[in-house]
Structures are given as C-alpha cells and as structure tokens.
C-alpha cells in the first residue's frame, strides 16, 4: 500500500511516498530555515506564505522522484495538528483537494504520532514502548502498548525543550537555530555553572522556562559584575541539566511501566548530548534504544506516511471537512 504523506505544520513543506508504513519510496523536504533565521525564529505568517508558494512544486517533485503518478497512490495522510494553524492549512487543503480529485481515502495524522513513527522507517517498532518526543514545539513522554495507541504520560508545562534551547542560544549570542549551536558549543565546555535541575519531581512533566530564566539571569548578573561569561561552559551546564532531567524521567517511566523499548523522536533527538546521555542510561538498564537518523528527526512527510499506514489499519479516516487544529491531544 502506497501512502502519500503530507507535512506542513511548521516551517518545512514536505511530502513523501511510503510503502506499507516502512519503506521510503521518495521524500522531498523544502525547509524555510534560512528565511526564518533572519528573524531569529519561525514567523508564522511568513511560514504560511512560503508553504502556499511551494506546495505544488513539492507535490510534483515527490511524484517525479518516485516515478509514480497520483493513480499509483492508495491513500493520502496529512498532519492536521498540532502546529501553526496557517502552515497546517496549506498541507491540509492540498491533501483534501488531492483526495477529492483522485477519490482517495484521507487519513488524519497527529504530528507527534508522525514523529514517533519516523522510527518505524529505521526498524519496526516493538511494543510496549516508551517514546520521548522532543522538538522545538513538543516535549512529551508517550506510552504505547500497540500500534497507533498512545497514552501521554507527561509533557512540558511551559516551553518545549527546543524552544528553551533557541532562547538560551540567543542569550549567549548564538545564531538561530539555537539547538544545534548550543549542542556543538556544549561539547567543548565544562559543567561549571550552578543551574537548577528543572521540575525534579515525581511527575512525568517537564518545565524548561525556569531553567531558561536562570540562564538569562546568570548572564545578566555576570554582566553587571563585569565578569566575562564562559559561553561553552554555560552551554555545557545548561545542556547537562536538560539531558539529565529528560533521561531521568524517561528511565523512570520505562521502569515503572516495565517497558524495555525506548524510541526518541523530534528535532532535539539530533542533540548529541541527549543521545549520549540516553544511550548510557539505556545500556545500564538493558533498554533497547532507537534514535532515528537526523533526517527523520526533523519534520518530514515520511513520518506522516509511515504513521498514516497504521492509522489507516486502525480505521482512521477523515472526510473533506477535516480542519486543522493548532493544539490537540495525542490519543
């Protein structure tokens, strides 16, 4: 079964053709990152404008790359939330138009489900599992007992982890996107700064705005005192707190649920500090850890096509009145 996956929830216009939820036939990702870098972050209206400019070009490319036509496609899967509403709408309207013209089933896919199923393109998911989803917009711990069944154990109460990275990067003078830059700098520094371990409690929730504020205050206070900030050490200290709390709560979730499979998804899964911290902990606890290669961590249509296959198997369908949702729970 060939599924056309469509993703436009933030600043990537991406389409992919996926066979049977596991094989990537073709993918096109048109990233707007260079444009948004001028503004230090994603500007929603500019993102929406670029999606509409690019949508048919990306549809055309993904089909040509696969050597297929729309007649070869069995169903269309689309991200309908959560995300930037104006951005989501472009992929959604395109999906509905194609579903209408070619009379194909329309499969509604939750963006986070997509991130989780990116792992299925690396190796088939094994259940039960815990998924740690970390990106610029999301920080969530999800329990799955079987395919396309999601129980959200906890999530961020304020900033998503990637958002905190971007803000900290700005404070220490690193360009957008902040995450990879902080990660790179942290690798060269030492954990010398006294920063709090955020929301170190019994819940599975996260909070990164306090840690972010602590970094901002520290930089401000040191400036007042005329002290020079050792940027690489501050990056390392911040990154250590983030990876420590993410690792700690994730491992606890695995233990408490008696689960031995962990998958990591989302843009921040590309973070080297987080990867090594999770790997160490999983090795110690005998947990099977899957982290997809970086191209599957960031937003892409492939993950939506993969998730769409399992959503379809579960009987999920949408009609032409499907609307985009800026926020919605993963169920």
């Amino acid at each position: 079964m060939y599924i056309l996956g469509i993703e436009s929830s933030c600043d990537e216009t991406s389409l992919s053709i996926i066979k049977d939820g596991t094989v990537e036939v073709s993918t096109v990702v048109l990233s707007q990152m260079d444009t948004h870098a001028y503004y230090g972050g994603v500007v929603p209206e500019i993102a929406s404008r670029m999606h509409v400019e690019n949508i048919t070009i990306v549809i055309d490319e993904v089909l040509k790359k696969a050597g297929m036509s729309m007649d070869d496609i069995d169903a269309i899967a689309v991200t309908y939330g959560p995300g930037l509403i104006g951005s989501l709408l472009i992929g959604l309207m395109a999906a509905k138009t194609l579903a209408f013209i070619y009379n194909k089933p329309l499969i509604p896919v939750h963006h986070i489900a997509g991130h989780i199923y990116a792992n299925n393109l690396v190796r088939p998911l094994e259940f039960p599992l815990i998924a740690l989803v970390v990106s610029g917009g999301h920080t969530e711990l999800v329990y799955m007992k079987e395919d396309y069944s999601f129980e959200v154990l906890g999530g961020t109460l304020d900033d998503a982890v990637g958002e905190a990275y971007d803000k900290v990067a700005r404070v220490i003078g690193l360009p957008y996107p902040g995450g990879p830059n902080v990660d790179r700098l942290a690798a060269t520094g030492k954990d010398t700064y006294d920063l709090p371990l955020p929301l170190n409690d019994d819940s599975y929730n996260f909070s990164f705005s306090g840690l972010k504020s602590a970094v901002i205050n520290l930089v401000h206070n040191e400036k007042q005192r005329g002290n020079e900030i050792i940027k690489e050490n501050l990056a390392a200290s911040f990154q250590n707190r983030v990876t420590e709390i993410l690792t700690k709560k994730t491992i606890r979730a695995l233990k408490e649920r008696g689960v031995s499979n962990l998958i990591v998804a989302g843009g921040v899964a590309a973070n080297k500090g987080l990867r090594s911290s999770l790997k160490q902990a999983c090795d110690k606890e005998n947990i099977n850890l899957t982290i997809p290669e970086i191209k599957y961590c960031t937003d892409n249509g492939a993950m939506i096509g993969a998730a769409g296959y399992y959503a379809y198997a579960k009987g999920l369908r949408a009609d032409l009145s499907l609307n985009a949702k800026a926020t919605m729970e993963l169920k």
Binding site: V52, I59, T97
Partner: peptide, 19 residues
C-alpha cells in the same frame, strides 16, 4: 484575509496542477 486567500488558492493551485 491572508489565511482566507490561501485556503481557496491552495485548492485552485493543486487542482490546476493535478488536472
């Protein structure tokens, strides 16, 4: 309306491209 324009125009673009 910026969003309004895009909704109808995306339909028209995709339809014109596909057909």
């Amino acid at each position: 309306s910026f969003t309004g324009i895009r909704v109808g125009l995306t339909v028209a673009k995709v339809m014109a491209y596909a057909l």
